[in-house]
């Protein structure tokens, strides 16, 4: 891993944050009332090739940017994404190669991230649990992310993954 890879990852995350808030956010492209978590997909794609510490910082930064550009209290997405990256780091070396494993991993980690956001948000006074829509808002992004990962992972792989592979291969 080189500093250049971290820089590229950060640039990709910033692009993803812009896309998430301007294109995929609530009220934009969100089929059946939910949108993919594009930022998380990019983070997971980068985590494949980065060392653990930069990966965790990348996840934290990505979550923090979403917090700053969103309406929830600061730190909620940051916590959810940092934990998600940690889980991804723990399992990336054990995961078998293959798109099915990658897809399943992306699905489960997105599910964990959104569930954590909902749970931590509720602890901080957000009223996510007042509606059944919370189930849809948690499950659908995980499904969309699997589809999005099929596009994002190869791109990230070409940009920063040529030299080093630590699992999660497509």
């Amino acid at each position: 891993m080189r500093t250049r890879d971290v820089g590229i990852s950060l640039a990709l995350v910033i692009l993803a944050v812009v896309a998430q808030t301007a294109v995929f956010g609530d009220g934009r492209i969100n089929p059946w009332g939910a949108s993919p978590a594009a930022v998380l997909v990019v983070v997971l794609a980068c985590v494949r090739y980065l060392d653990p510490e930069p990966s965790l910082l990348l996840g934290f930064t990505a979550g923090m940017l979403l917090d700053l550009l969103g309406g929830a209290p600061l730190g909620l997405w940051a916590m959810a994404y940092t934990v998600s990256v940690y889980i991804a780091l723990r399992f990336r070396s054990r995961a078998d190669d293959g798109p099915v494993i990658v897809g399943l991993g992306v699905f489960l980690i997105t599910l964990v991230a959104h569930s954590l956001f909902v749970i931590i948000g509720t602890l901080f006074g957000e009223r996510f649990f007042t509606s059944t829509a919370v189930i849809k808002d948690t499950l659908l992004p995980a499904l969309y992310n699997v589809v999005l990962a099929a596009v994002v992972f190869p791109i990230v792989s070409r940009l920063i993954g040529r030299r080093q592979r630590l699992g999660w291969s497509t």
Binding site: L56, G63, P73, L74, G75, L76, A78, M79, T82, I120
Partner: peptide, 22 residues
């Protein structure tokens, strides 16, 4: 290990930020 320590540190920072923000 180092990554777990960093995880805990980041979670603490995020938790404090959320608390201050609320």
């Amino acid at each position: 290990d180092k990554s777990t320590t960093l995880l805990i540190a980041l979670l603490v920072v995020a938790f404090l930020l959320a608390t201050f923000d609320v």
